[in-house]
């Protein structure tokens, strides 16, 4: 955790001091451009890397009743048998975090010899909040890239600011994302299981996002950014015609730097879960494996102990027990003798 914190802090500091020492173009333009290229290239590479390996087996996890007999109601979304069902399942998974919604907490109470499972939706709630706030914030930022600003963006802003408190209006998404981030961070520290499994690469993106959100909030409410100038500068980058950076808040460059680093590590870290969820074979396949044969591209020829070999092994006892045979004892014996050139003799134990 410390390593990640220090790393994130250093990145922030470097950008902040650097942009005051005349490196604004480095942190404000070169790095973001590089980041976008790495992000797009990296994600394409990542998906191709996954896609290169086939899906040999259909192994969906069934989360409810299968479709078998007419009078038994199947779980169409948790155990989808059709393509449409799978799409539904995936939508629930991606948009509403269906699986996480099942979450429980286990408590073992040795005193009373009892294990209890509590429904535990906090992780689901805050994870959902975090992702949606991030999305809303992301969408709001389009106002920096688009001229004129589309109406739908204004709606988003209107609803996000619906509380109507403060000047500038407080965005709900700002408040909620801070809460969600704190929750996601604190549970890693407070919950012993989470503390035990968390690694630097779990904290690092969290700190980067905290930095990103923190600088963003600062620029909106406290150390205000000249939004108009920032937009001119950003449009400049988009159109590849660099504009002046004079007077822009160093926090702005710090903000951009956090974002850039996040984009750069995205395809090479756990953040790829964004793509992984779509490709997970326990979720994205129909549970109709008995109805439709799933083909394995590398299926090997079947080599197995055949019935003929089996009968050769056990012909005698099978005959004795009166079990039907493909080749009767006499036939087999005759065949053996033919091979070894001996006259026919009565059956004897091997």
């Amino acid at each position: 955790m410390i390593v990640s914190f220090v790393a994130a802090l250093l990145i922030g500091l470097a950008a902040w001091t650097g942009s005051q020492a005349g490196l604004q173009y480095l942190f404000g333009m070169a790095l973001p451009l590089l980041a976008v290229v790495v992000f797009i290239g990296g994600m394409i590479w990542r998906v191709l890397y996954w896609a290169k390996s086939p899906v040999p087996f259909a192994i969906p996890t069934t989360g409810g009743q299968e479709r078998s007999l007419d009078w038994i109601k199947p779980a169409r979304l948790d155990t989808p048998m059709t393509k449409a069902g799978v799409v539904g399942r995936m939508l629930l998974e991606v948009l509403l975090f269906r699986s996480l919604f099942r979450n429980t907490t286990t408590r073992v109470d040795p005193q009373n010899m009892r294990i209890t499972y509590f429904s535990s939706k906090w992780l689901w709630l805050f994870a959902l909040l975090f992702h949606y706030c991030f999305l809303v914030t992301f969408i709001r930022h389009f106002r920096f890239f688009l001229e004129p600003v589309p109406v739908c963006l204004e709606w988003v802003e209107f609803f996000d600011g619906i509380l109507q408190v403060g000047v500038p209006t407080l965005f709900l998404s700002n408040v909620l994302i801070v809460c969600a981030l704190l929750f996601l961070f604190l549970r890693r520290i407070v919950n012993p299981k989470l503390r035990y499994i968390s690694m630097a690469n779990d904290y690092f993106p969290l700190f980067l996002i905290m930095g990103l959100v923190g600088t963003g909030i600062c620029m909106r409410y406290f150390d205000k950014l000249d939004v108009a100038q920032a937009k001119v500068f950003i449009m400049g980058i988009v159109h590849f015609s660099p504009q002046s950076v004079e007077g822009l808040n160093p926090l702005f460059f710090t903000h951009l730097t956090f974002l850039s680093v996040l984009l750069i590590i995205f395809p090479f870290s756990k953040l790829v879960h964004m793509g992984g969820v779509f490709l997970s074979p326990t979720r994205n396949l129909p549970c109709n494996t008995r109805q439709v044969r799933h083909v394995n591209p590398w299926n090997k020829p079947t080599v197995f102990h055949t019935y003929a070999e089996y009968e050769d092994d056990f012909r005698e006892p099978m005959a004795e027990a009166g079990l039907p045979l493909e080749i009767s004892l006499e036939e087999a014996q005759a065949h053996d003798n033919e091979k070894s050139g001996k006259p026919v003799e009565p059956a004897s134990a091997q």
Partner: peptide, 18 residues
Amino acid sequence: AKHRSLKVFLDSCVRCGA
């Protein structure tokens, strides 16, 4: 190379602890 599941499962875990 044979199992996409393996790649996706190895790459995607966020250690959420669920």
